[in-house]
Amino acid sequence: MKNFKAVGSRLLQLALVLWAVVTILFLMFRLMPGNPMAAYIDPTFTLEQQQQLMAQFGLDKPLWHQYLIYLGNLLQGELGQSFRYREPVGQRIWILLPNTLILTFSSLIVAYVFGILAGAYLAWRRGSWVEQAAIPLVLTTRAMPEFWLGMVMLAIFSFSLGWLPAGGTRAPGNEYSGFLDLYTSRDFLAHLALPAATLAIYSQGLPLLLMRSNMLDVMKEDFVTMARIKGLSNWTVVVRHAARNALLPVMTSFAIAVGYQLQGNVVVESVFSWPGLGRELVNAVAASDYPLAQGAFLMIALVVIFMNLAADLLYAFLDPRISHA
């Protein structure tokens, strides 16, 4: 019963955060220079279109009324009309979202597999010169600007060695019939390699350091000592007993990392001209395409918020010792 109550209050908190972020978004896009109609209406729209949008978003009404209409429209997934693409923002975002998610998840999975293995290894080799050298190195990868790493990778692997393409998701002229056809093509994977590697190098630090410090903690627990006393081999103790338990918090950090990664994507997607949400957000803000910028921002915020929720719930679920007080 206690758990139900805890989940209930967490969901209440979720509702509050969602409402607040949506409201901040509304206020932010009323901050910009010029008149408030500029948020939805481009001067080059036809008069008919302008009037339709005026009515749809209540742009001639007072601010509080606009706010209510805005909330109502959001609930129906209505985000307005993109200035540059001349199509509904929602539609545009659904085209971009898969690209961003594929980049995010492929890089994070590589980063986590590597980070977990390396972190466990470093904990095992505690105090050795490998560990002494590796930790500052890992901290240094966390200190790199992701876009700079991307630039260096591009300069070396694309412009200097010519091994991999410099940007986009496919070679010019290549057409693919469907989703699966594109995303499994060699062409697409070659384009994915550099941005995904860039993000992976940046992200492996978190799981690595977490896994290492968890391992160090777990190795001191009684059950590990017990396993050693039983005469189990070093491998069995480290992998079967310690690593499995140290893994739990690392797995929950995955959800948080997805949220962070999505924010970091903004710059990396720009470097590699990767047609995803982050790059679109930057381009939309730069080109004053306010509805699209608003929609992309909202989508990124939603993923961040739901990933925070997933991390909290996963944490409580995987480790029953944690209870929501």
Binding site: Q13, L16, V17, L18, A20, V21, I24, M28, L31, M32, P33, G259, L262, Q263, G264, V266, V267, G278, L281, V282, V285, A286, A293, A296, F297, I300, A301, V304, I305, N308
Partner: peptide, 23 residues
């Protein structure tokens, strides 16, 4: 602490980009 929860729900870099561009 609810304010902190809200701050955790704001995507940091996009927020800074939008504010820096509008102001």
């Amino acid at each position: 602490m609810r304010l902190a929860d809200i701050a955790f729900g704001i995507p940091f870099l996009p927020f800074v980009i939008v504010l820096a561009a509008f102001l």
